[in-house]
Amino acid sequence: MSQQVQGVVSRAEGAPVEVTTIVVPDPGPGEAVVRIQTCGVCHTDMHYRDGGINDEYPFLLGHEAAGVVESVGDGVTNVGPGDFVVLNWRAVCGECRACRRGRLEYCFDTHNAEQKMTLEDGTELEPALGIGAFAEKTLVASGQCTKVDPSASPAAAGLLGCGIMAGIGAAVNTGRVGRGDSVAVIGCGGVGNAAVAGARLAGAARIIGVDLDPRKLEWARGFGATHTVDARNNDPVEAIRELTGGFGADVVIEAVGTPKTYEQAFYARDLAGTVVLVGVPTPDMRIELPLLDVFGRGGALKSSWYGDCLPSRDFPVLTDLYTQGRLDLDGFVTEEIGIGDVEEAFARMERGDVLRSVVRL
Rank of each mutant, 00 (worst) to 15 (best):
A184C: 02
T174W: 01
M165N: 12
V140T: 13
M285W: 03
H111V: 09
I208L: 11
Q115N: 02
G246P: 12
R101T: 12
A197Q: 02
D328Q: 08
R232A: 12
G73P: 01
P127I: 03
E95C: 00
H43P: 10
K260V: 15
Y306Q: 10
F295Y: 12
N112I: 08
G169R: 07
M165D: 08
G222Y: 00
G248D: 08
L321F: 04
Q37V: 13
G352P: 05
G102K: 15
R206Q: 13
L125F: 10
D109V: 00
D83L: 10
G80K: 15
I339L: 15
V196L: 05
F266L: 15
P27D: 00
H43G: 01
F315K: 01
G28L: 11
D293F: 04
V333I: 10
P29S: 13
D74P: 07
A98F: 14
M1P: 11
T77S: 15
D50W: 12
G198M: 12
I168T: 07
P150Q: 08
R35I: 14
C162G: 12
V148L: 01
E105M: 12
D314C: 05
V68L: 08
G198C: 06
I337D: 02
R101I: 02
G82C: 11
V8S: 06
V172S: 00
L291K: 11
D353E: 15
I240R: 09
L271N: 06
H63A: 03
G175V: 04
T319G: 03
L125A: 09
E56R: 13
W219L: 04
K216R: 15
P29V: 12
L139F: 05
A32C: 08
R297D: 00
L291S: 14
R241I: 04
G80V: 14
R360F: 02
I164H: 00
V237Y: 07
G94L: 10
P81Q: 04
D83S: 13
M117H: 04
E126S: 14
V229L: 11
A272K: 04
H43C: 03
S357Q: 07
V359N: 06
L129S: 08
T110L: 05
L321D: 02
G62V: 05
G178Y: 06
